[in-house]
Design a protein around this nucleic acid. Structure first.
Lengths: 353, 353
DNA sequence: ATGAAAGCGCTAACAG
DNA sequence: CTGTTAGCGCTTTCAT
């Protein structure tokens, strides 16, 4: 195996072509003030020698790295991967390389990741905060360094943030209206982290929809999930089954717990949706694979990712202290058999909230 | 909003403390030859001023970036995210930052990602190749630059590669033995990309298990999947249903297609496993949420990720032309209701192949 | 249209 | 134990 050869630098190309390094640099960057002939020569030589410009050096000198940092809480399930897809598509189109980091739902890790990104001199940071993020100093730091900061889906509750979110309230409210329209009157809720905007809104919609329909908000019908996986949903359902009076519907803040609910109900031979309707949130692919298929809410993942990048590009163009906008995407409720009596073909809910 | 202040450099710290930059550098890097007192002073000052060492400059100068590049075909499903978790855990423990890239199952993208990683001067590259990777020049380039290269799960068929894979053959063979033991005699196979080592081995095991049991290998019972999602599995099953004589079992190379199979069978009111047994591969979480629960094979995702990092660390320590080893992990067959008549509590298969 | 030269912020000899 | 110094490879004025 060949010993690590010294990589060539633009100086090598310069020497080879008998021009200066600056000419090489300009040619490689397609600067407007280089003659077409030299430019062609340089590119040809670079191609022939398989020259790779050292991005580190370029970034160090220019202050721009052409890298976009992305911090997500995790990449389980379909949502975040799909968002990341959207991000990558648009970002690479715009000439940026994307660096993905997982915070693992831990603030400390999130802080470290942000630090690492900043140190790597990324040109922008896109973040969906962790469930344990209740301090925001690390985000301030990003802004102080003049690095565009865009949030997506999960957004901190601080002023002047730029980002794109789903209208979680609306999505959840529509689910509730649907359940209520189906005749459910004792609806339980499996709630996500109360400090996340997303699950907070879903919970709020749950509550307000009940009240708007003259039903009481009963705290013992609300179970706080500690995880967002199947097991957590199953545990929550077991807990609900201890109640003297059972709910007639369960609305979970995430799909996986809703899946756990279905399992427990089946084990207890409780029919869905006849005895109990079930709905989740996220439109995970598995929701159409379970029986009955799970009612859920589409979160526009891909669109969200693309929008985040667009916001970033906007910030990049504007002045230093431009504070971007906040975009809200419309959710799409997908009514399926787990909540639908009689399996009537059902149009998307038309809501007049 | 504050205007992007100039970030401080070690020169600033040096001036502040009245020492030289090299002392600062050494202190910050915990070099052994710095007095504890100065070291403490430096760290204290750095902390107080919230100094961030510029990794770009450090990497440019030292040639080491403390970054590990990871290229995966995608991050859908649970497998690759889990592997990535394993990688991140061990890598961050060893002081490396992980940069995740998706090839999207496209060689061209894979090549670009590798180039980008190389340009960013990563200290190592961990790759699971795309389904369309049939040329390997980009991997050669990695080696030529002396950058440790480790494959995981999907590995190119070239000599002297270092990596960690699952014993896909064994896993698939065990599934087949299980199906045969259950009395299945006309087993269909939904095959993955024939040029990927993983799915190639699963297919080979399918074939050889049949032959070993005196059964014919019938090409029309093998459907080549074009995607690895539910829809592809559903389409494949519809195709199998056209056969004059139906199979009595379906072994899919991936879980999601197997899920699609279940759906189609249910739509056609074909009972599982009584009329047709079904098995997948990957042990996706949803496999325990469908009804009947899906027999599958655990791929040791986390362990695989950790092993890949260990291999990388080994290569880092060795000489330039050390070619790492190839590690094979044992799969674990998980027999569930989709293939198990009579729902007998079943131990993990004990195999004497 | 091209070249010369000054760094970006840091590390690593080498010298004390 | 600490300081001096020469770059890492590139971009970017400022000249020409």
């Amino acid at each position: 195996m060949a010993k690590a050869k010294k990589r060539l630098s633009i100086a090598d190309l310069a020497q080879e072509l008998g021009v200066s390094v600056s000419t090489i640099s300009r040619a490689l960057n397609n600067a407007p003030d280089v003659s077409e002939t030299t430019k062609a020569q340089v590119w040809e030589l670079a191609r022939r020698l398989d020259f790779q410009t050292n991005t580190l050096a370029a970034a160090l000198r220019s202050g721009r790295s052409n890298m976009l940092g992305v911090v997500v809480p995790h990449i389980n399930g379909a949502f975040f991967p799909e968002v990341v897809h959207g991000i990558e598509d648009l970002a690479s189109e715009a000439g940026f390389n994307v660096m993905i980091c997982q915070s693992n739902e831990e603030v400390t890790r999130e802080e470290k990741q942000i630090d690492a990104l900043l140190k790597a001199q990324v040109d922008g940071v896109l973040v969906s905060i962790s469930a344990t993020t209740h301090t925001f100093g690390h985000f301030e730091k990003v802004r102080q360094q003049g690095v565009p900061l865009v949030f997506f889906d999960r957004m901190p509750d601080i002023p002047q943030v730029c980002g794109v979110v789903l209208d979680d309230y609306r999505g959840a409210y529509q689910v509730m209206e649907h359940l209520l329209a189906q005749g459910c009157r004792r609806i339980a809720h499996l709630a996500g982290p109360p400090l996340l905007n997303t699950t907070f809104q879903r919970h709020r919609a749950y509550r307000e929809a009940l009240l708007a329909h003259g039903l009481p908000y009963e705290p013992h019908l609300v179970v706080q999930l500690t995880e967002s996986d199947m097991a957590a949903g199953a545990a929550a359902m077991e807990q609900l089954l201890q109640l003297p009076e059972l709910p007639d519907a369960v609305f979970a803040a995430y799909d996986f717990p809703a899946g756990g609910v279905l399992q427990v109900l089946e084990a207890h031979q409780i029919r869905v949706p006849e005895d109990m309707a079930v709905a989740g949130f996220s439109n995970e692919p598995f929701t159409t694979m379970v029986k009955p298929q799970l009612t859920s809410v589409d979160q526009q993942a891909r669109h969200m990712g693309e929008t985040a990048v667009k916001l970033f590009l906007q910030m990049l163009k504007r002045t230093d202290n431009y504070v971007g906008q906040r975009i809200v995407l419309k959710p799409k409720v997908l009514v399926r058999d787990s909540s639908q009596y009689g399996r009537v073909a059902h149009q998307a809910l038309r809501l007049t909230r």
